[in-house]
């Protein structure tokens, strides 16, 4: 427990002096203050969070057992929506794309580490370089989506022009079922690599220099130094990078909506987008079916959330 600084002691005596002037508080409050205070402090946040986050999760699960257009009466159909999902081509396309997103998005973690290692120097202007490398993360995904749509556009897109000069073929990435999801994931990787980079830069900043020097004395160099000494110390950064990347991959909605609107022919849909499309599309509101898709996505996410919580819980116990 750190000792109090003199400034802190000064604040303390000032607050204590203010308090001694008000002593006419009732006996009940005096006796139970310690026990009631946390609940009073928690109440506003907990009420808001319960209304908008906790309760709606259960409502969504409940709605997924109904056939509902959002306005009229709900009809109970039990597992009907889930049974329908099993036979839905579009659902499998979305699920497959989600897995692709998850796997490829995780490339942001090693890529971010690579960029961080590249930038972890102390040359003039390096701070500005680091900020500019981080830049894509600050920009909204809507803007990132528009930028890459332009970048990929056939005829006048920069990347298409490059591909054409290199291979002589013109490829319309976002109109081609084979490449569309890969193209969108690449756009998503751009800010995500920046995010992982900043996590690793902070991690590298806090590495124990003595250990590194000692390992160097023992003749550790390059890869073996990175693998045996540096990476273990970057553990917390790696963990957070993986968590935010997994969440980012499963939340991917903005880029799909902006860049292709799920097309061509629904081939770039992901679960989050397909759910939105079913629940709120111009083809009619299928709230129950949409909720069922959301529940599936939620279950996938729950696996990762549970892992995360278990790790945090273990750390809390150790502390």
């Amino acid at each position: 427990m750190p000792a109090l600084s003199s400034a802190q002691i000064k604040i303390l005596s000032k607050v204590a002096a203010m308090s001694s002037t008000v002593s006419a508080t009732s006996g009940f409050w005096k006796r139970n203050q310690q026990r009631l205070a946390p609940w009073l402090f928690l109440a506003p946040g907990m009420i808001m969070f319960s209304i908008y986050v906790i309760i709606p999760i259960f409502q969504s699960i409940w709605i997924s057992f109904y056939d509902w257009d959002g306005l009229g009466p709900k009809t109970w159909i039990g597992l009907g929506n889930y049974v329908e999902l099993l036979d839905d081509e579009a659902f499998y396309t979305s699920l497959k794309n989600n897995i692709l997103w998850l796997v490829l998005y995780l490339l942001a973690v090693p890529a971010g580490l690579a960029v961080a290692l590249f930038l972890n120097q102390t040359v003039t202007g390096i701070r500005l370089y680091k900020s500019l490398f981080f830049f894509p993360f600050v920009i909204s995904q809507v803007v990132v989506g528009l930028i890459f749509t332009w970048f990929y556009a056939p005829d006048f897109g920069l990347l298409s022009a490059l591909i054409k000069t290199l291979t002589g073929q013109s490829i319309a990435i976002l109109a081609d079922e084979r490449y569309v999801t890969l193209g969108i994931i690449a756009a998503g990787l751009w800010p995500q690599i920046a995010y992982c980079m900043i996590l690793y830069l902070t991690g590298l900043n806090n590495i124990n220099p003595e250990q590194v020097e000692a390992a160097r004395m023992d003749g550790a160099r390059g890869w073996s130094l990175l693998w045996n000494i540096i990476l273990p110390q970057l553990g917390p950064a790696t963990f957070i990078a993986i968590v935010v990347t997994v969440i980012g991959a499963l939340r991917s909605f903005d880029l799909v909506s902006i860049m292709t609107d799920g097309g061509p022919y629904g081939s770039s849909r992901v679960l989050s987008f397909y759910m939105y499309e079913q629940a709120l599309s111009e083809y009619g509101y299928r709230m129950g079916y949409g909720a069922a898709i959301a529940v599936v996505l939620f279950m996938i996410m729950m696996v990762f959330i549970t892992l995360f919580i278990v790790r945090m819980l273990m750390r809390e116990r150790h502390a």
């Binding site: 939340r251 759910m275 949409g290 959301a294």
Partner: peptide
Amino acid sequence: LFVAGNFIPFQILMVP
């Protein structure tokens, strides 16, 4: 609860 709520997909909240 606060931590977990933070990571859920938005879509599970959308309809309600």
